[in-house]
Design a protein around this nucleic acid. Structure first.
Length: 292
DNA sequence: CACTTGACCTGTCCGC
DNA sequence: TGCGGACAGGTCAAGT
């Protein structure tokens, strides 16, 4: 999916676009897979509701409603959440924006607003979902109780990061930072980019990485995510923001999807291999693998 | 308990 | 051109 910077980019867009709007209808085109709530729940707690707040925790969007319910959204690998105003044909959108073509064959859920604007949930692979929860119960959802700290919180420092990583001492460093219970929001792109930035090989066992290196890794996680936010996230294939526009961070990526290219730091050739069950990009010259 | 693998879906790309 | 297989940004359940 969209990882933390992409979900946060969408959140910022939605905050600007849909707060205060009232929902007049909700179309569950592909229920129950993408939206498992009953039609009665939708009728009682979603239709007629006004959007009050748009929050994010880890990679989950939390759209809070005036009914005391929250619409939680997880985009997984290919989900999109795109707002289209009633002036959709009036121009002002980049030529590659999706807005003129929605709904499309991957649209799973549509919300209609009173001003004839719409929010489309599209998802090619159908891994993503929308779910209604009472807002007061959101902190008690299993995922919310288990998920680790937000990496961009200034209060999240090496003093907290290192002991959390040490709980996964026996696995690879890449598997550890992808583990959402260790810290929130890192996915495959920012795992590879931050490990390159810290000069740590993704296949290193955590126990063989020093505290000093872990501290550098946390700095790099924060750095690559902040940088990505500045560029509207990464569009590898499907990702678009709340207005249907692509993100441009991958232009500045150093290793992700750059196998065969030259490492900008040392001149080595970037390779791709499998680590933690995921395609993994690494410079084998300056990210040195441990000797076993 | 810690860790790894396969499953969930559909589309695309690459080799034969 | 067609077919089969591998792979794709994420998370679970089930296996070892």
């Amino acid at each position: 999916m969209p990882e933390l910077p992409e979900v946060e980019t969408i959140r910022r867009g939605l905050e600007r676009l849909i707060i205060g709007k009232r929902i007049t209808a909700a179309h569950q085109i592909d229920s129950p897979k993408s939206f498992p709530n009953s039609p009665a729940d939708v009728r009682n707690f979603l239709v007629g509701a006004t959007i009050t707040t748009v929050r994010r925790r880890a990679k989950v969007l939390l759209i809070e409603l005036s009914t005391g319910y929250t619409l939680a959204v997880h985009l997984k690998m290919t989900g999109q959440l795109v707002y289209v105003g009633s002036e959709r044909w009036g121009g002002g959108h980049p030529s590659d924006s999706l807005v003129g073509s929605l709904p499309d064959r991957f649209t799973r859920v549509v919300l209609d607003f009173t001003d004839d604007s719409h929010l489309y949930f599209n998802d090619l692979r159908k891994f993503g979902w929308l779910k209604l929860f009472p807002t007061l119960e959101v902190p008690n959802i299993d995922f919310m109780k288990k998920v680790g700290p937000e990496p961009l919180e200034p209060s999240f420092t090496a003093a907290e990061f290192i002991p959390r990583m040490r709980r996964r001492n026996n696995t690879t460093i890449k598997a550890a930072i992808l583990d959402q219970t260790v810290l929130a929001g890192v996915g495959n792109i920012y795992a590879d980019e931050s490990l390159w930035g810290a000069k740590i090989h993704p296949a290193m066992r955590v126990k063989n990485v020093s505290d000093e290196q872990l501290a550098v890794l946390l700095e790099q996680i924060k750095y690559v995510m902040e940088l990505s936010l500045q560029y509207g996230g990464s569009t590898d294939k499907n990702y678009v923001d709340a207005e249907g526009n692509k993100g441009s961070y991958l232009k500045f990526a150093n290793v992700f999807r750059r196998e065969g290219q030259i490492c900008p730091r040392c001149g080595g050739v970037i390779i791709k291999r499998r680590v933690a069950g995921r395609g993994t990009h690494v410079c084998p010259v300056c990210q040195v693998e441990e000797q076993l």
